[in-house]
């Protein structure tokens, strides 16, 4: 697409989308949000970039094959479920580590996995569809 406004704006917007997607990913534990919606927003940023600069440029900007991102996301999500075996709890039970005010948990790890899986899957689909057109 040859639009000066879009191609200039996309560079900034993509960065903004990615930042906001991380924000949504992290705030999801007390407010609406989470890995899934974060992944969608992040993917939307790259989709916008691919509209503005072409799929090839978007793939280069991503550096990693989106399929690999998705698969790693799935791996992280599954492994976070396995972690509760160490505490001999049911699979996928959340384990919490409270450091002063910071609450870390396997739930967050699972959400990061979901984020990556959604991000990778959406970009795989959209890039593949754009390339066939």
């Amino acid at each position: 697409m040859n639009s000066l406004i879009l191609s200039v704006g996309a560079r900034f917007l993509t960065a903004l989308f990615l930042l906001f997607s991380l924000f949504v990913l992290l705030r999801g534990h007390n407010s609406p949000g989470g890995g899934f919606i974060g992944g969608l927003i992040g993917a939307a940023g790259f989709v916008l970039y691919s509209f503005a600069a072409g799929v090839e440029a978007a793939r280069q900007a991503l550096r990693v094959d989106p399929r690999a991102i998705g698969v790693w996301g799935m791996a992280i999500a599954v492994l976070s479920g396995l972690a509760s075996a160490l505490a001999s709890l049911d699979p996928f039970t959340g384990l919490w580590l409270i450091l002063a005010d910071l609450a870390l948990s396997t739930v967050l790890v699972f959400d990061i996995g979901v984020y990556l899986a959604v991000f990778g899957a959406i970009l795989t689909l959209v890039f593949a569809l754009e390339e066939t057109l």
Binding site: L125, L129, T132
Partner: peptide
């Protein structure tokens, strides 16, 4: 919706193919 989206995307790609 998510599942439907995934399946629809596949069906669309298949249609193009």
């Amino acid at each position: 919706i998510v599942i439907g989206f995934g399946l629809f995307a596949f069906a669309l790609a298949l249609t193009i193919r």
